[in-house]
């Protein structure tokens, strides 16, 4: 799926330089469920952003689906993103002015899917995450767990090859958090690659592999469980 070689990311603010990623090597195969862990400021989210084509590395190589994308312009990154990657954020990042239905529909609009097909796919996805009855609600009318389920639906509706989740349970209580994790596991069982940043050790156990980071470097990689059967439709 993806391969990072000697990846570096340096942030510059005036005269201050911060090395967020330092010679990172990482390989993720299709269908894996990988958890990235580490203390605050270790570079987890930066790594996720680069993997998700939301940012470019300062140096090094990033091959995604056999394409070298490290120096791709914004336009090409957007094209790759919309076809292949779905995002789930800690703070949900739903657009407050749009309804649940409109939020989930957004990726399909950018993929230029027809109106009829969009309606069918959005409703199917809302049904899948159990939030169809709230389709006309605004995000601020939902609980945290409900909002995260909407975010999951939005991430999945485009049928991406990979889901990137940045602390998806960070703002949820344990019950809702477990629900979200079970959703992710089910997705992974269907063949979707999942890369998840998390602070939670229990939730990291849902993944097959855990990558630990410290100070911008990958410290260790360990297997947490065997892969589930992939039955992707």
């Amino acid at each position: 799926m993806l391969k990072l070689d000697n990846l570096n990311k340096v942030f510059r603010a005036g005269e201050v330089e911060t090395t967020a990623l330092n010679s990172v090597d990482l390989k993720i195969t299709a269908g894996e469920f990988v958890a990235i862990m580490g203390p605050s400021g270790c570079g987890k989210s930066t790594l996720l952003n680069i993997i998700g084509l939301l940012d470019n590395p300062s140096s090094g190589s990033y091959r995604f689906l056999d394409e070298e994308v490290s120096a791709y312009p914004e336009r090409k990154l957007a094209q790759l993103r919309k076809k292949n990657i779905g995002f789930i954020f800690q703070s949900f990042n739903l657009i407050d002015e749009l309804t649940v239905f409109d939020n989930v529909e957004l990726p399909l609009l950018y993929q230029k899917v027809s109106a009829a097909a969009r309606r069918a796919r959005v409703e199917a996805m809302l049904e899948k995450v159990g939030i169809l009855s709230r389709r006309d609600h605004l995000p601020q009318q939902l609980s945290g767990g409900q909002q995260q389920r909407v975010a999951v639906a939005r991430a999945l509706v485009g049928e991406p090859k990979m889901i990137l989740a940045d602390e998806p349970t960070g703002n949820l209580d344990s019950a809702n958090g477990d629900d979200v994790m079970n959703l992710l596991v089910a997705l992974n069982a269907e063949g979707t690659t999942i890369v998840m940043v998390t602070h939670s050790q229990p939730h990291a156990q849902y993944a097959q592999r855990a990558v630990r980071m410290l100070d911008g470097k990958v410290l260790t990689e360990s297997t947490t469980r065997a892969p589930l059967t992939a039955n992707r439709a």
Binding site: G52, L54, E74, R75, A78, Q79, R81, K82, K83, G86, F87, N93, L94, I95, E97, L106, P107, Y110, Q111, R154, G158
Partner: peptide, 16 residues
């Protein structure tokens, strides 16, 4: 800002 970030994350380009 958040809206722009989300739209870009789900595949919107700067031109859009």
């Amino acid at each position: 800002a958040k809206e722009v970030g989300v739209r870009k994350a789900v595949g919107g380009s700067r031109a859009q």
